[in-house]
Computed example of a mutant assay.
Amino acid sequence: MDQAQPTGPTAASPDERVAFLVDVDNTLLDNDAAKDEMDRRMRQLLGDEESARFWAAYERVRHESGRVAVPQALVEYLRDLPAGTDPATARDQHIALADVLIGVPYSDYVFPGAVAALETLRQVGRVAILTEGDPAYQATKVARSGLADPAEGYVFVAPDKSAYLREVAAIFPADRMVLVEDKPNNITRARAIFTGLGLAFSGIFVRQGKYAAASGPEWDGAELTVDSIAELAAMSPDAIARALRTPIVSRTA
Rank of each mutant, 00 (worst) to 15 (best):
A190D: 11
T7R: 05
D86Q: 03
E167R: 13
S250H: 07
Q123A: 12
S65Y: 04
A4C: 09
F172M: 03
L224Q: 06
G47C: 05
A190V: 08
A73C: 10
E76I: 00
Y109P: 00
A174S: 12
I193W: 08
A136M: 07
A4H: 13
A169M: 12
R251A: 13
K141R: 12
A11G: 08
D25W: 13
L232H: 07
Q5I: 11
I187L: 15
Q3A: 15
E37V: 10
A128G: 15
V115E: 15
P14G: 08
E231P: 00
Q123G: 03
R251H: 00
D86M: 02
M1P: 14
A98W: 00
A192N: 06
A234N: 03
V100D: 05
D238I: 06
V180T: 00
A222N: 07
P112D: 13
Y164T: 12
L28D: 10
A11N: 10
A128F: 05
A192H: 07
Y137D: 04
Q5D: 09
D36W: 04
D39Y: 10
I240F: 01
N185V: 09
T140F: 06
V142L: 11
E64T: 06
K210I: 01
S236M: 09
A136F: 10
A83H: 09
Y58H: 14
T120M: 14
D86I: 01
P112F: 02
A234P: 15
N31G: 04
G47W: 06
R41W: 10
P150K: 13
E223H: 08
G153S: 10
R17F: 02
L130F: 11
K141E: 11
A33E: 14
E59I: 04
G203M: 01
E64W: 00
E59Y: 07
F201W: 06
G47N: 02
V70C: 11
L101V: 15
K141Y: 12
G196E: 13
D182R: 06
T140M: 14
Q5V: 15
P217V: 06
A212D: 09
A56L: 11
S250N: 04
V155K: 07
E132H: 09
I129T: 07
A234K: 04
T131K: 00
N26S: 12
I193V: 15
W55E: 08
E218S: 13
P87F: 05
P184Y: 00
G146N: 14
H63S: 13
E132Q: 14
F205C: 02
M38R: 15
A52I: 01
P184A: 14
A241H: 04
P6H: 09
I95M: 02
Q93N: 12
Y58E: 10
K183D: 09
A243H: 03
E50T: 06
A234Y: 03
P173N: 08
F201R: 01
S162I: 15
D25Q: 07
M235V: 06
V22L: 08
P173K: 14
A212Y: 05
A253S: 13
P14E: 03
A19R: 08
R91W: 12
E167G: 13
N26L: 05
Y109F: 15
L244N: 06
A170C: 05
P82I: 02
P87V: 00
